[in-house]
């Protein structure tokens, strides 16, 4: 769980824990490690043994680096099995979500940059047009991916990725799921005014 270099510091643990609690709205100090969340987590097999309860422990101990970069934080599907089973009603999914946001705010490169690209593309598209057009949204997502890979100068990866993606698109078309019609909402100015208001808010 923790790296060897990790040194416990009371102050940083306290500050980190309170920031997570304020941003996620979850009282994580009430966790008594019963591991009901761990038993139900659908991605627990793929996270290097980091389960929701251990994630909470990491935060409480102030192991900031591990908390922001471990596998669970980035693989969490936000399915809320942990939250509904927790006897103390801690929604650990929201803790993981908060950690992701903090990592992105801090400019830490996520282990899975496609995650960030997908949600950014989705969010930007909904702000820009008021409705999601899947072709446009996926297009932006792919462009972001290509741009990220270009920066790392991995041309081969781009080609294999494009191949996989065009297969995906063809599959969607074949299954009558790809539509070329374009939708937008007239309330876009309301949405962009709201978006301006959201600037600089770390929590609601």
């Amino acid at each position: 769980m923790s790296t060897e270099e990790f040194q416990y510091s009371h102050l940083s643990a306290q500050v980190f824990t309170s920031e997570i609690m304020a941003r996620s709205g979850q009282d994580i100090t009430s966790c008594y490690q019963c591991k009901r969340c761990a038993a139900g987590c659908p991605v627990a097999e793929q996270t290097d043994m980091v389960t929701p309860n251990r994630l909470i422990r990491m935060v409480i101990l102030g192991d900031i680096e591990q908390a922001l970069t471990n596998q669970l934080t980035w693989k969490c599907l936000f399915c809320h099995t942990c939250g509904t089973r927790c006897p103390n009603n801690i929604k650990t999914g929201r803790v993981a979500d908060t950690l992701k946001k903090m990592a992105l705010d801090a400019g830490l490169d996520p282990q899975n940059p496609e995650y960030k690209n997908f949600h950014k593309a989705f969010f930007n598209h909904s702000l820009r047009w008021g409705k999601i057009n899947e072709i446009g949204m996926m297009g932006e997502y792919e462009l972001r991916n290509i741009w990220d890979t270009m920066k790392k100068r991995k041309v081969r990866k781009i080609i294999s990725h494009m191949k996989a993606r065009s297969q995906f698109a063809w599959e969607m078309f074949r299954q009558k799921r790809l539509h070329l019609s374009f939708h937008s909402s007239k309330g876009r100015d309301e949405i962009s005014r709201l978006y301006k208001k959201s600037a600089g808010r770390k929590w609601i």
Partner: peptide, 12 residues
């Protein structure tokens, strides 16, 4: 905003 909005911006 589905699940994506909450990943980027809590207010939105």
């Amino acid at each position: 905003g589905a699940t994506s909005a909450g990943k980027i911006n809590d207010f939105m």
